[in-house]
Design a protein around this nucleic acid. Sequence first.
DNA 1: TTGTAAGCGTTATCAG
DNA 2: CTGATAACGCTTACAA
Lengths: 336, 336
Amino acid sequence: MQNLKDRVTIYQVAQASGVSLATVSRVINKRGSVTEATRKKVEATIASLGYKPSGLAQALATNRTTNIGVVIPSANYVYIANMLSGITEVAREKNYCLTLFSTSHSREEAISMIEKVITTHVDGAIIFDDQLGPEDINKITSYNIPTVVVDNKISGDRVCDIHFSYDAAMKNFIMDYYAKGGDKPMTFLHAHNTGRLLSRCEKMFIKTHEELGRPYHVMNCSDSYTHTYNEFFESFKSGNSKDTFYICYRDSIAAAVENAAMDAGLNVPQDIEVLSLVGTKYAYIVRPTLTAMHIDMQEAGKRAMYMLTDLLNQELVEKTSRLEPRLVLGQSTIKR
Amino acid sequence: MQNLKDRVTIYQVAQASGVSLATVSRVINKRGSVTEATRKKVEATIASLGYKPSGLAQALATNRTTNIGVVIPSANYVYIANMLSGITEVAREKNYCLTLFSTSHSREEAISMIEKVITTHVDGAIIFDDQLGPEDINKITSYNIPTVVVDNKISGDRVCDIHFSYDAAMKNFIMDYYAKGGDKPMTFLHAHNTGRLLSRCEKMFIKTHEELGRPYHVMNCSDSYTHTYNEFFESFKSGNSKDTFYICYRDSIAAAVENAAMDAGLNVPQDIEVLSLVGTKYAYIVRPTLTAMHIDMQEAGKRAMYMLTDLLNQELVEKTSRLEPRLVLGQSTIKR
DNA sequence: TTGTAAGCGTTATCAG
DNA sequence: CTGATAACGCTTACAA
């Protein structure tokens, strides 16, 4: 194989092996019929020239990129990385490439990414971005791009969705807590820009409490372990914030609260209890282990990608898939 | 904007606004001069038709995809996700898209991904895959694709590399440990397919011990928290494996060891000590906090992407960058 | 079985 | 300032 040359084209391969481009194309795609002899010849020159077809040109000619656009807020959250990993696995199996569109938590960013997805000419898209509303997602589907939307309702011809049934799980958990004699008032930790899944949880949290006529709190906190830890540590130190049940949106934040409590000399779960809404394996690595709602994000990713390939092959049955969070009790809450 | 149409092309825009494609192209790219009047007109029809240029066709015509290939083993490790996040950040700033090539720990997979990178026609590549040797990476650079290689030595015209100086850090740590009276024999936890960074660490671990004439162990373990936890828990329970200093390749594994020890009734760091080689924020979230080598993978990612854009703009100064791991002492080792 | 030629949706170089 | 027209590298009828 030659090195350091400019890209070898199909035309050069054709010349070098004394055939036309059409024949080379046939050999590459194993389509149409070619004599065993010429095939050998062409394959030989392909190897010797180190020719690789240009995916670009192929895509333009066939109107298929074998590229899937994946829209996520950031790869830097464990649960998103898990989903990404599920998507990747199936993508490899189905021979698709993934192009990443990272929106980093700002809605404008997210919208401009949507535009990019369109120009990038992907065959399909998987959108898991809590910031985007249905209007934004419609923009993509209006370009007739088959799309799987995660945790967002949407309808359309070539669109599917995957849901997490957090609302019910949330409500059940709260009802159950009080029913079994839970006596600490609950506080929901709210952070900006953490997406609609959590807003929904928050709404359900409030609604359930109001139905029950129970007191509750919603407290702002930052989406950072260190900030949250420091803030709670100070508060616990000065004797505040205890006798509370904290509902945190992910493991890091829940760990921040319980670590702060313990380092300030409190006992978990006696003095405070903690629940993590989006549990990952870190929920059982930290100590006390976290009571958490677990959802198999890897499975969600796989399922999304399977739905998408079905959509692309026009052989889809179910347009909606639902994942139930599974409550795993840990040491951060009192067994009742 | 029209919905549900097949892709609108530049040609249709031209027709609809009564100009030639050339003019539309000029408007899109803000290149060449166009009357204010015609520009307005064209822009109006672009908006009303909902036209988006095809990145594919643009790429083919300009020979620039604005796409960077990123080769990683999996997005599912915190430190890799961190790096990915750094890359993403700079990519957005520089207006590049990222195409992900996930190799999932098998060398064949990795090699076939390399092929894919080439056909995908990326403008450049960032390769962080411990499995790949220089020969494999040369394959990519021989196609004249500007490349930044992370944690792998490589030379070439349009190639840069980023290194982690683990060898020295490793050696220093071990020497220091014994010099200050560390008295537990050390065991290095080895897992298959965790890449060359860790092989290098292991080699250095062995070499240093042999130079020192100290006893040491290398123990196989699985790359899974649960497996490792279970195995160690049993072992600790039956009274084995204590009075050892464990060197683990990442936080989860280190946490598995210390959790197993504590759950088996041992004390950390009195009975066993633990060091994590690739520390992330979880090193200070778990309890006891982990003594760990921290390396800012987000920074590594950013730096890789900056080097790559420099390479693409032919304005590179440094071809090599080095990141020093920073040792952060935690509660999993005895202060000496 | 093989070759010719017309696209695919852009950009870019010329003339006008 | 604007419009033809030739690339870009490949696929795919249609002919031969």
